[in-house]
Every structure is written in C-alpha cells, then in structure tokens.
Amino acid sequence: MKPGVSEKLREPFPPEAIGLRPVVVCPACKGTDVVCEKHHPATLCDTCGEIAPESHEHHEYIGHAWIRERFTEADPDWSWEPLAGDDRGLPLLDKHGGLWIRLTIGGRSTLGYGDAPDTYGGNAVKVAISNAFRNAAMNFGVALEMWKRKTPGTVSVAPTPDEDPRRANQLREELKRHFHRKNKSFGQLVGGFRKWSHGDLEFRDAPAHVLLAYKEHLGIT
C-alpha cells in the first residue's frame, strides 16, 4: 500500500460524522410494517430523528459521504467495481438484493458486501453500494472503533447477591411455555434472547434478573 494511506484511513472520525440508526428490537414489530399494540403508534424519535416504534435502540454509523471523503483524502485515485455484472453491464445483485464489490485504495484491493433490507427501488441499489463500501472499508481499518463499540442497551451480566438460581430456572420454563404457545421453536427463543442481549449471554446461563428483563421486553405478564 502507498505510504501514509493506511494511517489516513484509520484516523478517527469527528463527532459530526457519527449518525444514529434506529434498530427495532421488539419481535412483534421487527421486520413488519405493523407496530404491535404495546408500541403503537410509531413516533418521531427526538434522538435519531426517525419515525420508529418506541421499541428501538440506536446504532451508530458513519455516513456514506464521510466514507467517500476519507477514501479520497487517503488516495485520490481510489476506485471500486462490482464483482459481477448482468448482460447490460450493470452491477449484478444477488437473490437478497445485495452485491459484492472490489474496493481498491492505495494500490491494495479488498472485497466487500452490501445489501439494503427493507429498502426498495433505486434507493435500494444505492444503499447496497453504500453498505458494501463500509463493509470493505473495515478491511482497511476504517471506523473499526464503531464496530467494536458496545451498542446502547447492552445487558449487564452481574447478578444480584441474593439471587436464587431456582428462580432463573423457573423463568426459563415460563419463557419456553410462552414460545410453545406461540408455535415458535426453542431455537427461536435461544436465538432471540442472544440477539436481545447483544451476544453477551446465553439463554441457558442467564441469571434471573436478566431473564426477567427479557420477559418484560417480550411483554409477557
């Protein structure tokens, strides 16, 4: 790689470059256009400025323009190309609406993948390319601190001193019965819990106070 390029790419971004993206965490709201009764209606969030259900957290990200600017500052001759094209010579999207790209900066190339979930039309292509830039840029060390940083709402693993292990087992059984009534598998329960806890905890080992918080999160009375 050309001298100085790697160092420039790895420089921290200023606070004004960091945006907030709403991420819905309620299973009943996530992935649908319908907001569940508990979180209805979706409202304008004062923190991120987006319309979203109350059941959302904020994930930090660096905007597309800032990423492009950083590439240009590091190497004005940077370039990118799709890994595959269709019969018209346009970037070929896969069945998920995503694409693979080759990003070249400072004489070094790396691959990246981007998609555009819940986005449609021409905007979806632009979002997929933007996400592919960010994904490939990670291999150059761009904004790695953003990926390493814990998101808001990470669950604490510290149990209370007087917590009874039997209570944790009781809550596990209650959650299993709830998912069974909803015709959902045990795997969905375990996967949903791990995602909710940001990968910090496993369902089988979680203490009672965390399982209780998860039960409340699901709206189980």
Rank of each mutant, 00 (worst) to 15 (best):
R149I: 02
R134I: 07
G98P: 05
K126S: 14
D200W: 10
D33P: 11
S197C: 08
D46C: 00
R181I: 06
V25H: 09
S130H: 03
L83I: 10
T221Q: 12
E202K: 13
D46A: 14
G122Y: 12
E11M: 05
E16Q: 06
R149G: 00
H64V: 11
R68M: 12
D200Y: 13
G31C: 12
L218I: 07
R21E: 10
N131C: 08
V125F: 15
P161N: 03
T154M: 14
L92R: 06
A132H: 02
L103M: 14
G187M: 09
G89V: 04
V210M: 04
S130L: 03
T47H: 11
L175V: 01
D205W: 04
E69S: 02
A128W: 08
Q170Y: 10
D200K: 15
P152R: 14
V25L: 12
L103N: 12
E7I: 00
D94R: 11
E202V: 14
F203M: 07
K176T: 11
M138R: 15
F140K: 01
G89K: 01
A206P: 01
L93M: 15
P82S: 02
I67F: 02
E54Y: 13
D94I: 11
E60L: 05
L212N: 11
Q170P: 02
A124I: 11
I62C: 04
T72I: 07
D33F: 13
V127L: 09
A42L: 09
K8L: 13
W196G: 02
S130Y: 00
E163V: 02
F133L: 12
H178W: 13
H209G: 01
A128P: 08
L218R: 02
A84F: 06
R149N: 05
F203W: 08
F140S: 03
A42D: 05
L20E: 05
C29N: 05
D115T: 07
D205G: 05
F13D: 00
R134V: 08
V190D: 07
G187D: 13
C36R: 07
V24F: 03
L175N: 06
I18D: 00
E174P: 03
P22L: 06
R70C: 00
D86R: 06
T43L: 11
I105C: 10
